[in-house]
Write a protein that binds this DNA or RNA. Sequence first.
DNA 1: CGCGACGTTGATTTGCCTCAACGATTGTGG
DNA 2: CCACAATCGTTGAGGCAAATCAACGTCGCG
Lengths: 192, 192
Amino acid sequence: MRSDNSKIKEIFKTLDFSDSEIKIIESVFHKIVVKKGDILVRPGDLVDSHYYILEGCLRTFHIDSQGKEYTVQFGIKDWWISDYTAFFTGEKAIMTVEALADSIIYKINSNHKEWLYDQIPRIDRFFRIKLERAFAAFQKRILSGISQSASDRYQHFMATYPEIEKYLKNYHIASYLGITTESLSRIRKDLS
Amino acid sequence: MRSDNSKIKEIFKTLDFSDSEIKIIESVFHKIVVKKGDILVRPGDLVDSHYYILEGCLRTFHIDSQGKEYTVQFGIKDWWISDYTAFFTGEKAIMTVEALADSIIYKINSNHKEWLYDQIPRIDRFFRIKLERAFAAFQKRILSGISQSASDRYQHFMATYPEIEKYLKNYHIASYLGITTESLSRIRKDLS
DNA sequence: CGCGACGTTGATTTGCCTCAACGATTGTGG
DNA sequence: CCACAATCGTTGAGGCAAATCAACGTCGCG
């Protein structure tokens, strides 16, 4: 399968693989095509999958007891997404993972991932580095959350992730910033 | 050196090493003893070290243009600490890492760490798993920050990390929660 | 076309901040 | 070891940012 082959190369574009390694990797990645609005993970699920976004946009969010939504992460092309708390710790999901646009995803499950680490050890390093960068970004976001005003956080978000904007409704952004849609509306008005 | 040897085993307690591996690891870890108030990383530093806390307590915090402090992370026995944004990305530090008590630290620098990954590949996995757990904890903290009131965040923090409390002043906790010391004082009053 | 989802605006309330003053605690030098 | 200063924590009054509640305009889609 030549075309799937090239997708695998795209996922791990910083690594070079032999044909036999590509075969190994292909055997544990599964392509899923989802439509806007589709849900990949629901609260209470056991999350044993990690998702690579080849195309489209997804978000991970939590719904509290009052039904309010809080977005923890957006993901677009070439990002990985899941409910990481559940995926890494084995706890049940408290998050929902939802497609914000028609998307093409490559999915790998937890056991297969561990197996893959054994088969091709430099993939361990690959994911460690991905994780390091994501971790650094989260640290910055925590700092932003405790140190900046809503307006500053909004401007910072828009400047940092301009490519994501086109997939988002205002209420997605508000739920990411931890403010209401009304407040976001007023912030946008003040800035214009 | 029998005693240093045992410390290495403590740092990597989920792994088993041969004597020659222990020698390799010892050669890249350096013990530092710091006093309460000592600074390990300053804003503007190139951060090429990762710190393992054998004993004591440290924190990583940011100082904004008005001189206000925002604590991003505390660390106690058996935690790792640094300015991760700087350490992972190679950017200059925007954080300060400070000892909140007399502490015993084991320090490894970035190049040595990469070298160690090559020498003993399962250490890659060890750090990946550490990072996964830290990442999950950060995701929870972000959610807490955007979804909970200051009082809820305070109670959640105290319940989750009771062992850290004894090292902290109230203003440390306030700077971690993103509130003022006055607000924290009032929250404590309301809860009692 | 008509309905539901989305975004905006206004009035009011609330949670946390700011500024200021004052106890309590800690630590240090005489 | 005490005295005193500095640091830390608490309390009060007032202000501001963002939430809440409510109404209404707009847009996109079945």
